[in-house]
Design a protein around this nucleic acid. Structure first.
Lengths: 212, 212
DNA sequence: GGTTTCGCTGAACGGTAGTTCAGCGCCGGC
DNA sequence: GCCGGCGCTGAACTACCGTTCAGCGAAACC
């Protein structure tokens, strides 16, 4: 009785969730009508309320689906014993993108919108990212890997900003660079730039003072 | 004949623009009805279309108003001859916030939505921020202030991420810290943390190798 | 002071949104 | 083969959205 609904059965219900995720990501919740959703999912208008009670109910189902993908992605995270310095957040992201190449763009777009709408679970995800960053800072701090003069309050936030930047602003990055920051090569390169910036900044070493 | 409409006359038209800015920022364009706008501005429903032609027209007027505020803020920017290293973007922002204390929160909220909504002028503003960051990099590079191994492609984007992070994510920062990242003290502190992180990173100087 | 002007009003309107529900067709049990 | 249950349909319904426009009232002008 439990665990019904085959995983590889793209039935109306699941099709609605997947399609809704993509359309909500693209145009926002209010920008998509139930008729759009029904047409794009190749089901009747009535099926949405039949399965989810209302359009809002569908949104919740999509949220749950998104969260499930997100939770699954996080399980790839390195264990708490690993303390490689710069960017533990990026590694699983890279791996996760590999496995969700087709859906990734919709999922990122949806995430973007969730943060915009200040939904409860958007806050949850942000808090999770923050916790990871702060945990990284704490662990590195315990090993004396962070300079004492660095602001411990802001550092984790700045790490999260750098981490989420491409997710939130990729549409604009794309306009400037001509391709997405998630493209394999750019992504890896960003990963390196990000780790290096965090660790050393861009400035010259403080040794020889290059005056004027 | 030109330059009509007194600056200190909070007439219906201007009241509509100011109120709409705040409401759009809070609930989004689609989340606000013309009736909401009329009631909150204490004018009739008809006045919106009378002045702006349509609700969309009001949005454009609000965009223009926002842009005017933004342009005005940018005039405080240090001239092109100043090349103080870390964060020229933050200084005028600080000054600007001083002069717009009451409106600031609405303006930032509106900006947040514009960026996350992918509006045309959101892209314009992003491009502007990017141009400033890139210009800063170019100028500093010319003076040899940036290490050669730093990624010149990503550096300006990462700077923009750090710059816009608090704007985009402040609602969530507020949940964690209990107050807005735009609060005077936090803002200044973030400004310092931001500049320092960019310049030197958080890592120990490469001199004495702290092995293990 | 009468008349024109013009900013402004708000009831009424058409369109479209989300929701409802009577009923259709398919599948399994008797 | 018939019947009952159930997933699903989509025309119809209601509510609310943005928009319209005939007309109001207070200044401005002669």
């Amino acid at each position: 009785m439990a665990a019904e609904g085959g995983v590889d059965t793209p039935d109306g219900r699941q099709r609605l969730i997947t399609t809704a995720l993509a359309l909500f990501a693209e145009r926002g919740f209010d920008g998509v009508t139930v008729r759009d959703l029904a047409r794009a999912s190749d089901v009747s208008i009535g099926l949405i309320n039949h399965h989810f009670g209302s359009k809002e109910g569908l949104r919740e189902a999509v949220d749950d689906y998104f969260m499930a993908q997100f939770e699954e992605a996080q399980q790839v995270l390195p264990g708490p014993d690993d303390d490689a310095p710069p960017a533990p957040l990026d590694e699983w992201a890279d791996d996760w993108i590999n496995r969700h190449e087709d859906e990734a763009s919709a999922l990122f777009g949806y995430f973007r919108r969730a943060l915009l709408d200040e939904s409860e679970w958007g806050a949850k995800i942000f808090a999770r990212f923050y916790a990871i960053a702060q945990d990284t800072v704490t662990r590195m701090d315990a090993r004396g890997l962070i300079r004492p003069d660095v602001d411990r309050l802001w550092l984790p936030f700045l790490m999260v900003y750098l981490e989420l930047g491409t997710t939130l602003l990729d549409p604009y990055v794309k306009r400037i660079l001509g391709r997405s920051g998630f493209d394999r090569e750019l992504w890896r390169r960003r990963h390196r730039a990000y780790g290096q910036l965090l660790l050393r900044g861009y400035g010259l070493p403080p040794g020889p003072e290059g005056a004027d």
